[in-house]
Nucleic acid binder design. Structure first.
Lengths: 204, 204
DNA sequence: TTCATTTCTTATCATACATCAATGCACAGG
DNA sequence: CCTGTGCATTGATGTATGATAAGAAATGAA
């Protein structure tokens, strides 16, 4: 197997080293709090109604978060590929039942971070705390941009924005999931793509 | 004038007392950093392209934030009435030019908080820091809920959600602004309201 | 008050997108 | 090899919402 739990952990260590200047000594202490798991495609990490206890760091693979509305339709909130975090912050912070599902789109290697880890890491590393804050602010910026697109842009504009933002995902994610992320039907997205092809647009 | 700068400041003090257990002594120190201004209806507090330097606390009145897209259309991001904060967090945090405008929908009394204030208050009061964090998490929860609605819900569902969330604003804000917040035209909102009236829906 | 401006409504037509249904295609399992 | 299953495409049709225009109602200034 390409990504064992050990290599997953070691990759997360170098991620924290690069991004948040966490030293090997600091990481040795923190590693106690971490869990690394191989998650198979289709497996669910968080269910609507559960209180979210973890942030999930994607070492390898692809996760998504989504809601299911009262007509049974899925709405994809976020994708998370390599070196992204995904979680339900509100549920974790307020200890409330989550609205979200989180599951694996591909076989994945996932690092589980709980609140203990975040607290401890924030205590022993100022730069970690700052990096964590930066992630939070980035998250907000991202949500706001998305709202802005959903308020005004057409399906085509939203799709173009998507492939600019996630060039890697465009090929890995099934089209109907992209459609769900954009808030349109798979049929509509197919037509959008056809139209773009007609206009001789090159995405790759 | 009903709300002088002094009463505005004193009201903000009791707000911080209630919400974040900030004592009078602590507030006396913090007050140095605060600016209170009467803002006339229509006046602009932040413009697209400027770096946002403040959080605005609405002591009295009503503010909004909005973007203007490349076709010249306004999209309202947020309303802020009494005892709400409004700002562009991303711009403040990353020192980047803002995408947002913030202006006054009514004559307002506004407390200006800059980063100095936040830092100092966080230093001298743990409970303030916690309350500030709570506001941030709440903000995220709110943005996420909005995305979810924009992904799936009809104009009618979004309008019903709006009047449930902002019962006070429904009457204070011109209808075309509510339409802009919902991401529909004023004409569409008018139709939605007519349809609701036909179905004998009572909002008040 | 009167007049002007803004806001809301109504009506018509146009369009983007949804829905429903059928087909093609790839891939997995027997 | 055939066959089932999931996904993408395509076509036909319906519907919610947008665009435009005009009138009604509310608001505000002189």
């Amino acid at each position: 197997m390409n990504f064992s739990k050990e290599t997953g952990l070691s990759n997360f260590r170098s991620y924290l080293q690069t991004k948040a200047q966490v030293t090997d000594e600091q990481f040795a202490v923190l590693a106690e709090k971490l869990k690394v798991e191989q998650i198979q495609k289709g497996n669910v990490l968080l269910r609507q109604g559960e209180v979210c206890k973890h942030s999930f760091f994607v070492e390898k693979g692809l996760l998504r978060s989504f809601t299911i509305d009262n007509t049974g339709k899925e709405h994809i909130i976020q994708f998370a590929s390599e070196h992204w975090f995904i979680t339900d912050r509100s549920s974790t912070f307020f200890h409330e039942p989550s609205d979200l599902y989180i599951d694996a789109i591909e076989d994945s290697c996932i690092v589980f971070l709980d609140q203990d880890f975040i607290n401890l890491a924030s205590d022993i590393s100022t730069s970690f705390r700052q990096y964590n804050e930066k992630l939070l602010q980035n998250h907000i910026r991202h949500l706001q941009k998305r709202i802005n697109l959903l308020l005004g842009a057409t399906a085509e504009q939203r799709y173009l924005d998507f492939i600019k933002l996630y060039p890697d995902l465009t090929l890995r994610v099934p089209q109907w999931m992209i459609a769900s992320y954009l808030g349109v039907t798979p049929e509509s997205l197919s037509r959008v793509r056809k139209e773009l092809a007609r206009k001789n647009f090159k995405s790759i």
